[in-house]
Design a protein around this nucleic acid. Structure first.
Length: 736
DNA sequence: GGACCTTTGAAGCAC
DNA sequence: GTGCTTCAAAGGTCC
């Protein structure tokens, strides 16, 4: 309605937008405009034929073709509207053999039901009386009753051709027509006509009006509890009784006054996708926790091709269109504050926000010396604040420029949170793990009351993070800013062959790291769904991750597992250095082929799988964990920066250059550093200067695997020190 | 019992 | 125009 039309003006821009979402949406908007105009015409004409329709429908209703759907599916029907309205039953035999695959797609069946020649892709004929959506193993049977508006309350509009299609696929999926049977008094021309037009897939003897799931009682959840298993309607009986014969206007108004139906928002593309895919993911991952599943789905969503997504955008567009048609006066604003939880949420969030602000305010107001006057959240995060303060002083800007520099654009908006997250287990804690960890544990365990965002941060997970972060930062030498850093670890600790592979991968392009991580900055890429590319390679990975490999995301372990599954099934892409495997510091359960002794992971046992969404070990926290990991790596690099290591790194590079010569376009020195390195290395080859070595801290860190080598792997250090070209390889590769 | 978690997208609102 | 907020689904978890 208004908003929709108002959006039309921006369609042009949307088309130019790089956001494919908008593109899809825009296309839909234009069609919506067309549909709207068509509907107006149809509505006018419908009034002229209502009586005839109502009479005819009584005779024809038994016909199973439910034309609008199938008519619409019949290739082209430009004049469909009128022709349909006059003669809604276009099928000659009136008995479509079954729902086309496209229909199956549209009715919300999971992909494995819809694609290709799967027998299930062809739902039973409508006359069987089995709603196609029942095919859905999970959602189908539980699918709520759709848009159960009372008979005259939200009459189906005269559907245009497009809308007919919408209704056709919508009916089974969202606008269930299973149980709401309205007599449609002749006094309601539109309704009667609509009733005949409605794709009563169930081919009951009565007209079936689609009850839109968007309408919920005052309490949707309560209504949901009344779901009728026989009809798949979430709001079956009560509304059904509401629909009786004289449904009309007077009742609707009274009903609205007495009990305002809650008209839910139409599902967007992603929601539709989730509805379809949830069951599949649940089956694959044996997960039931929606939050975790949603994470997977969210990543899969991004992995979908443009075309695949466009399907859902189109569906969503149609959803909105139909919703708009059904509830012309409805606005998303109407649902604001629905369930009264708005107030609480708002309160919580205001608390959260105030807490977040207070963290700054407290620090600003009371200063670090008077933390006892800080509010609770601030006290909890005092280290974070402290660290961030020092961090800001040291370089990594609050704006996340460090990450941006490496192309981390997706999570820029999260960086603020990440800062806090990462800082919770950050560098300064490295040197006082026990103290801080325990403290953090004590403080963060009672996450309730915490900000939603911070709650997870402060969840037990965070308490673990120091240790894990130690492992991360020290072991993987992952430079956080870029996924290439993942290669650093590998390059440093793999065989020459593997190293070459890594080099080639890293040298190919920045995107080459996608083999390990689809996107550089989003930890999510590393996470389970990363390997979903392909038939469903990720399922096992996801499952594995969900079932206990979560630690792999906490640091070095993240890429190895993913890589091993995604790139090479036979041989892991990443082989951790024995030092890492044997070093208790690296307290990850498994790294590639390296099976770490779980005994050195004191915290792993305390995290039942998927038990608590707030638990860091829970896959729900993958993003945050990985983000934190990345950030923590930065912190660790900053914090553990040692001149000795730096010097060694610089020496390694210099030696490499000295031995192999320096090439301006050396693949190991990418463009961003070329110029700088060129200048620096020229100077260093002549006279290495340690004072400048800090500039190479990044690579040096990689070379030395940070504190791991420094503190517990003297052998590695020795080898790297003694090695000339070899060590330089390590270092230089890490640079790339 | 209800809020939270988690995801993306749409819509509304404030500035 | 931009940024923030709310809500949509889902079900386990927590208070």
């Amino acid at each position: 309605m208004p908003h929709t039309h108002s959006r039309h003006g921006s369609s042009g821009d949307d088309l130019c937008s790089t956001d494919e979402v908008k593109i899809f949406k825009d296309e839909g908007d234009r069609e919506d405009e067309k549909i709207s105009s068509e509907n107006l015409l149809v509505e006018e004409k419908s009034s002229l034929i209502d009586l005839t329709e109502s009479e005819e429908k009584g005779q024809k209703i038994a016909r199973p073709d439910h034309s609008p759907v199938f008519n619409k599916l019949d290739t082209h029907a430009p004049s469909f509207n009128m022709g349909y309205l006059v003669s809604p039953y276009s099928y000659a035999n009136g008995a479509p053999s079954g729902l086309p695959v496209t229909m199956a797609n549209k009715i919300g069946l999971p992909p494995f039901f819809c694609h290709n020649a799967d027998p299930l892709s062809t739902p039973p004929p409508a006359h069987c009386g089995i709603p196609p959506y029942q095919l859905d193993p999970k959602m189908g049977l539980t699918r709520p009753a759709l848009y159960p508006f009372a008979g005259g309350q939200y009459p189906y509009p005269m559907l245009s051709s497009d809308m007919s299609q919408v209704a056709s696929w919508h009916t089974p999926s969202v606008y269930s027509a299973s149980s709401f049977r309205t007599p449609y008094p002749s006094s309601l021309p539109i309704n009667t006509t609509l009733a005949s037009l409605l794709p009563s897939v169930h081919a009951t003897s009565h007209h079936v009006i689609n009850a839109h799931a968007a309408i919920v009682g005052v309490s949707s959840k309560q209504e949901c509890g009344v779901q009728d298993p026989t009809t798949n309607n979430r709001y079956p009986r009560n509304l059904e009784t509401k629909n009786p014969s004289n449904t009309q206007s007077n009742d609707s108004k009274d009903t609205n006054d007495k009990k305002k139906p809650h008209i839910k928002k139409p599902l967007n593309a992603f929601m539709l996708y989730m509805k379809e895919m949830r069951a599949k993911v649940v089956a694959e991952c044996t997960l039931k926790e929606s939050a975790a599943i949603n994470q997977i789905l969210g990543r899969r969503w991004h992995e979908l091709s443009r075309e695949e997504q466009s399907k859902y955008y189109e569906k969503a567009r149609q959803e909105r269109q139909l919703h708009m048609e059904l509830y012309p006066g409805w606005s998303a604003r109407d649902n604001y504050g629905y369930v009264s939880k708005k107030k609480k949420r708002k309160k919580d969030r205001s608390t959260t926000d105030s807490g977040g602000n207070n963290m700054k305010k407290c620090r600003a107001r009371f200063g670090l010396d008077q933390q006892n006057q800080w509010c609770k959240p601030c006290r909890r995060k005092k280290k974070c604040i402290r660290y961030m303060e020092s961090l800001n002083d040291n370089g990594p800007a609050e704006d996340g420029s460090v990450f941006d520099e490496h192309g981390s654009d997706d999570d820029e908006d999260d960086f603020d949170d990440e800062k806090l997250e990462g800082s919770c287990g950050s560098a300064d804690e490295t040197n006082k793990i026990e103290d801080d960890d325990s403290e953090s544990l004590n403080q963060s365990m009672p996450s309730p009351g915490c900000l939603s965002g911070l709650s997870s941060l402060q969840s037990p997970s965070t308490t673990m993070s120091p240790l894990n972060m130690n492992a991360n930062s020290t072991s993987n030498v992952v430079f956080p800013a870029t996924s290439n850093a993942l290669l650093i670890v590998s390059s440093d600790q793999t065989t020459a062959q593997q190293r070459s592979t890594l080099v080639s991968n890293s040298g190919s392009s920045s995107g080459s790291t996608s083999s390990i991580s689809t996107t550089p900055n989003t930890s999510s890429t590393v996470s389970p769904v990363t390997c979903t590319t392909g038939p469903c390679p990720g399922s096992s990975q996801e499952r594995a991750m969900m079932l206990g490999n979560r630690f792999s995301h906490l640091g070095m372990g993240l890429s190895p597992l993913v890589v091993s599954t995604s790139t090479s099934k036979s041989e892991p892409f990443f082989k951790p250095h024995p030092t890492i495997c044997n070093n208790p510091i690296f307290s990850l359960p498994s790294i590639g082929n390296c099976s770490l002794n779980n005994s050195i992971m004191p915290n792993t046992s305390r995290n039942p799988i998927g038990a608590n969404p707030r638990d860091i070990n829970n896959p729900l926290s993958i993003n945050q964990l990985t983000k934190r990991r990345e950030y923590q790596n930065v912190e660790m690099i900053e914090a553990s920066e040692s001149k000795t290591i730096v010097a060694h790194a610089a020496t390694s590079i210099i030696q490499h250059v000295a031995v192999h010569g320096y090439h301006a376009n050396h693949s190991l020195l990418n463009s961003s550093l070329n110029q700088h390195f060129h200048h620096q290395l020229n100077n260093r080859t002549e006279k290495p200067n340690r004072s400048e070595q800090k500039m190479l801290s990044v690579s040096s860190h990689s070379v030395n695997s940070s504190e791991c080598h420094k503190e517990s792997d003297s052998q590695a250090i020795a080898s790297s020190k003694t090695s000339s070209a070899g060590s330089s390889d390590n270092g230089v590769i890490s640079v790339s």
